[in-house]
Simulated scan of single mutants.
Amino acid sequence: MKSPNKQYHHGDLRTSLITSATLMLQESGIDSLSLRKLAERVGVSRTAAYHHFKDKNDLLSAIAAQGFMQWQQQAEQTFNNPALSVKEMYQEFVHNYVQFAYQNPAIYQLMFGNTLWKNNNSSNELKNTAYPSFQYQVNIVKTLQEKALMPKSQSALRLAQVTWATLHGLAQLVIDGIYADASHLNEMCDCAIELFLSNSPASHQK
């Protein structure tokens, strides 16, 4: 039922729709989410919801884009912390990445799953948010190479792809409950960090 007393300022409705849709996704999954149900939950007309999202795919892309923005903000906060060495920043980054996935499984799988990416269903908004996030990881690797914490014999792009693939694999194993669970998170992250940094001469330096 629509709530006639609910008022929105310009731009607020879109934010409210994304917030509510994210909660619905976390509660019941993608299949249960629709613009009609979302409009009912927020208390607006279906037309109002379609004014901001042309279809369900557009809405899912917006949720995923919001996830990437949250992840990016967390990563930037870590790497802008002057109290940490570069190695400590990377250690915190790895732990935070896997924890983000574990704590937000539905959003994480939407961000990186085939629902939006396999058939090029991702919106321009999502692409413009997600692609810079990967470039950010390439830049992290470049910094680690400059500090001799990762080998310079490999390209930053390839190292970023391999390290990201490893973290993604760890996250997915825990989300799916396959041969891993939440109690293993910290140990798996520490193992990955040691493997990533162990072949570099400065791996034990600050």
Results as ranks from 00 to 15, higher is better:
residue 2 K to C: 00
residue 2 K to S: 04
residue 5 N to G: 12
residue 6 K to M: 06
residue 9 H to D: 05
residue 9 H to I: 08
residue 10 H to I: 09
residue 12 D to R: 05
residue 15 T to K: 13
residue 16 S to N: 12
residue 17 L to E: 05
residue 18 I to G: 09
residue 20 S to P: 00
residue 20 S to W: 02
residue 21 A to S: 11
residue 24 M to H: 07
residue 25 L to Q: 02
residue 28 S to I: 03
residue 29 G to W: 04
residue 31 D to V: 05
residue 31 D to T: 09
residue 38 L to D: 03
residue 39 A to K: 00
residue 44 V to M: 01
residue 45 S to H: 09
residue 45 S to T: 15
residue 47 T to Y: 11
residue 48 A to Y: 00
residue 50 Y to P: 06
residue 51 H to N: 03
residue 57 N to K: 11
residue 57 N to W: 07
residue 62 A to N: 11
residue 68 F to R: 02
residue 70 Q to W: 03
residue 71 W to M: 07
residue 72 Q to C: 06
residue 73 Q to P: 01
residue 75 A to Y: 01
residue 77 Q to T: 14
residue 77 Q to P: 03
residue 78 T to L: 13
residue 79 F to W: 14
residue 80 N to A: 12
residue 80 N to C: 10
residue 80 N to D: 15
residue 81 N to D: 15
residue 82 P to F: 05
residue 82 P to K: 04
residue 85 S to R: 02
residue 86 V to Y: 04
residue 88 E to P: 01
residue 88 E to D: 10
residue 88 E to Y: 02
residue 95 H to I: 08
residue 95 H to E: 10
residue 97 Y to W: 09
residue 97 Y to Q: 00
residue 99 Q to T: 13
residue 102 Y to W: 09
residue 104 N to P: 03
residue 109 Q to P: 03
residue 109 Q to D: 14
residue 110 L to W: 07
residue 110 L to E: 04
residue 111 M to D: 07
residue 112 F to I: 10
residue 113 G to R: 08
residue 113 G to Y: 07
residue 115 T to Q: 13
residue 118 K to N: 13
residue 120 N to K: 12
residue 122 S to M: 11
residue 123 S to H: 11
residue 125 E to T: 14
residue 128 N to H: 14
residue 129 T to D: 03
residue 131 Y to V: 14
residue 133 S to V: 10
residue 133 S to K: 08
residue 135 Q to L: 15
residue 147 K to L: 00
residue 148 A to C: 09
residue 149 L to N: 01
residue 149 L to G: 02
residue 150 M to W: 06
residue 151 P to M: 09
residue 151 P to E: 07
residue 153 S to R: 12
residue 154 Q to W: 14
residue 156 A to C: 06
residue 158 R to F: 13
residue 162 V to H: 11
residue 165 A to R: 06
residue 166 T to F: 07
residue 173 L to W: 05
residue 174 V to Y: 03
residue 175 I to A: 09
residue 176 D to R: 12
residue 179 Y to E: 10
residue 179 Y to L: 13
residue 182 A to F: 06
residue 182 A to G: 12
residue 186 N to M: 06
residue 192 A to P: 07
residue 193 I to E: 01
residue 194 E to A: 14
residue 194 E to S: 06
residue 194 E to T: 08
residue 197 L to P: 03
residue 199 N to Q: 12
residue 199 N to F: 05
residue 200 S to C: 09
residue 200 S to N: 07
residue 201 P to N: 08
residue 202 A to F: 10
residue 204 H to C: 08
residue 204 H to G: 15
residue 206 K to P: 02
